[in-house]
Amino acid sequence: MDFAYMKNVLPLYEKAAVLTLRIGLEGIIFATFAGIVCAVILYEKVPVLRQLVMVYIEISRNTPLLVQLFFIYYGLPKAGIVLSAEICGAAGLAFLGGSYMAEAFRSGLENVAPLQRESAYSLGMGKLQTMRYVVGPQAVATSIPAFLANVIFLLKETSVFSAISLMDLMFTAKDLIGLYYKTTESLLLLVIFYLFILLPVSLTGAAVERRMKYAGSGS
């Protein structure tokens, strides 16, 4: 173990961790928005849009992120659209995550017994009110575990960013191994940094899950 080397390259890992987190969070935020919109469209069975969403979900879930990134980063410039690597990374993550988030929220929505919705309607509540006060909160609570699993999944997916020259944690480690040949040290730092990012997410996840248990799927 070469601790002097590890100390030397620490700033590079810190920079990479910040980049990984920043692009990861950007991607996750957009994915969540996309997911909510798609889930509501599916749940409310909006004509035409519903078909479009289904096509999107199938494309997004059945192609690897790497392929999506190649398309955005190397493909789009051929059509005259040149985006920075960082935007491409976040866009790719949002495109991939959107469908997973949509499925998570949709299953949350569908888990709320139809009777509740019908009761709300019969009490004179409108569609928006029903979503806002009756179905929405319960759906959010039940979809939290799936949502957090997606967050962790998407943060880990950033490890393919090397393909588009983004110096994320994985590429930084690979690059340093190629430069200085300190494989074990570089990989150990990599593991530590990923844990550093992901452990808090999964621990907060567990805590939030416990607190959100109030939502019964009452029939």
Binding site: Y73, Y74, A163, I164, S165, F171, K174, D175, I177
Partner: peptide, 30 residues
Amino acid sequence: SGTTAETYLIKNYPDIPLQKFDSYATAKEA
């Protein structure tokens, strides 16, 4: 990434922003 060009530039021109790729194919494309 991992070539002598990378090592040389990091050592002699540390201020030049490097865009690193892990394969020749992707570097050429970019």
